[in-house]
Design a protein around this nucleic acid. Structure first.
Lengths: 240, 240
DNA sequence: CCGACTTTGTGCAAACGTTCACAAGAGCGT
DNA sequence: ACGCTCTTGTGAACGTTTGCACAAAGTCGG
C-alpha cells in the first residue's frame, strides 16, 4: 500500500516524496530543459561562455533564479566570467539523464501520434522511437517517420525487446486508461499522456500530462479578465 | 516601460501582477479546466450532485485543495450534500470565460497544426477555429478539418474579420518569433506556442507554451533517478 | 422540533518557490 | 602585488501553495 497520490500538475510517483538523495526542486527540473535548449543555441553560434544574465534573458527567467537552479547541480560557473557553454551543456544533460538513450513507444498513430513521431526535438535529445503502435487495421502497416506502425498487440514484445521504459499515449480519451494499464503491466514506468483524462496508475509509475485544451482555457480566462477590466476604463472596443 | 518579465512557466503578461480585481490564484486557474472536464463526465452519467471528495478523486487532487479552489469562485456548494453538477459546470465555465465564443487562428499546417485542427476538445469548449494559415504553397488551399488552409498573408484580414484574440503557433522554431510578432501586430493578445523557442512579446500579451520535448526530458530525469537509486539496493535488473 | 450525521468553507501553519542583495572569488591591467 | 571590475553562489526576506483540522451549515429520520 505505497503512496498513490496523484498531484494536481499531472504528476505522480517520485519527486514530491522525501527528497531522494540530494533533492533538486521539481520547479528547477522543469526549467533545466529550457536552459539546455538555449545553451545549444549559444553553442551553435560558437559562443564559448555566457553569463547568468545572458542565459537568463534567453531563457526568459530571472537571473537569480537561473543561478540558484544551476547551483543545485554544482558549482560549474567561474566568477567574473560566467559559464562555459559546452561544459554546462554536458552537466545539464547528465543531470537530466540525457547522456543515455531512451527508447520510447508511441501508442496511437492518429494526427497527434504522427505529429509526435515526426517531431524533430523528440529524437534529437537521446529519445529514440522504438515503435509506433495503433489498433486500427487501416493504420497498422503504414509508414510514419520511417517507422512501420505495428499492431498494439505487439506492445509486450516491443517493450521487452527494446527495453522501453517511456510510453507516450496519443490515443482518444476513451482508450487511454486501458492503454496505460497495459503499458504499466509490461513494465513501462514513465508515461507521457496527451489524452484528456486523469490516468490512474500504481505507485512507482511517473505520469505527466499535456493537455492542449487546458492551456487554451487558461488563456481564455486571462483574455476575458483583460477585457472585463478594461471596459469600465475605456468602453469603446466592445460597443462598436 | 511597463513590466515585461517572462516567467519560467512560459507565461507573461497578466496574472502574476498585482492581483487584478478579486484575485484567483494562478494555481487554481490551472486546475479549473480539469475540474470542468470531470464535471462534464459526471453530467453525462446524469449524476446530479457530487461531493468534494468524489470530484477530487476523479480530478486527481486533494479534496481540501478542491474545496479551496472552488471557494474562490463563490459558495456554490451545499453543506451536507455537495455540489450541483450542472450549476457548477456553469459557474466554472463562466469564470474561465467559456460562455463566450473564442475565435482562434492556427498558424502552421504541418503535422502538429493538423492534429490541433482535428482535436475535438479544441472546438468543444467554446473555441472556434477561424482559420488555419501556412506559408508553404503546396499546403495552402488544402483542406484540414473542414477548413481551407489560407496563406499566412491573410492573417491580418482573418484576425480583423473574426475578431480573433487567440493565436496558436504550430510552426517550426525558426519562424515562430516572426509569426508571433506579426500576430501581436494585428492585435492578438493571447498566444499558445508549440514551437520550442522562448517568445519575446511586449507587455500586455499573454503567452503560454507547450513543449513536448521538455515533458519527455522531465520524465527522463525521474526515470534515471529511479534507476540510480535502485541499483545499489537491488543490482539485478540492469545486469542481466 | 430535535439530535445525529454529512459535507462545505476557511483559519492556520508548514512547505515550497522566487527575488533581493551582497559577500566571496576570479580575472586583468598596471 | 594590488586594487578595480565583473559575476557567481547563497543567506534571508517575501510571496504563494498546500494540507490539516474544525466550526458552521445544511439534510434527514423520528
Amino acid at each position: 500500500m505505497s503512496r498513490r497520490a496523484v498531484s494536481a500538475n499531472g504528476r505522480s510517483g517520485p519527486g514530491r516524496s522525501p527528497n531522494g538523495r540530494q533533492g533538486i526542486p521539481e520547479a528547477t527540473i522543469a526549467r533545466l530543459p529550457v536552459y539546455l535548449r538555449v545553451l545549444y543555441a549559444f553553442a551553435e553560434q560558437d559562443i564559448p561562455t555566457v553569463s547568468s544574465e545572458e542565459l537568463a534573458a534567453a531563457a526568459g527567467v530571472n537571473s537569480a533564479k537561473l543561478r540558484k537552479d544551476l547551483s543545485h547541480l554544482g558549482s560549474y560557473g567561474t566568477r567574473g566570467v560566467g559559464y562555459d557553454v559546452e561544459y554546462l551543456v554536458y552537466q545539464v544533460s547528465r543531470e537530466l539523464g540525457l547522456t543515455q538513450d531512451w527508447p520510447v513507444v508511441i501508442v496511437g498513430a492518429g494526427n497527434l501520434g504522427r505529429a509526435l513521431a515526426n517531431y524533430g526535438g523528440f529524437a534529437s535529445r537521446g529519445f529514440r522511437i522504438a515503435a509506433v503502435l495503433d489498433s486500427a487495421p487501416e493504420v497498422v502497416g503504414t509508414q510514419i517517420a520511417g517507422h512501420a506502425v505495428l499492431d498494439v498487440d505487439q506492445m509486450e514484445q516491443v517493450v521487452a525487446r527494446h527495453r522501453v521504459s517511456i510510453g507516450v499515449i496519443a490515443t482518444p480519451a476513451g482508450t487511454a486508461q486501458a492503454v496505460c494499464d497495459r503499458l504499466v503491466a509490461t513494465g513501462v514506468t514513465s508515461i507521457l499522456n496527451f489524452a484528456p483524462v486523469v490516468l490512474n496508475v500504481p505507485g512507482g509509475v511517473d505520469v505527466r500530462k499535456v493537455d492542449l485544451s487546458i492551456e487554451l482555457q487558461i488563456l481564455a480566462f486571462h483574455a476575458q479578465r483583460r477585457s472585463v477590466v478594461r471596459v469600465p476604463q475605456d468602453a469603446q472596443a466592445v460597443g462598436r
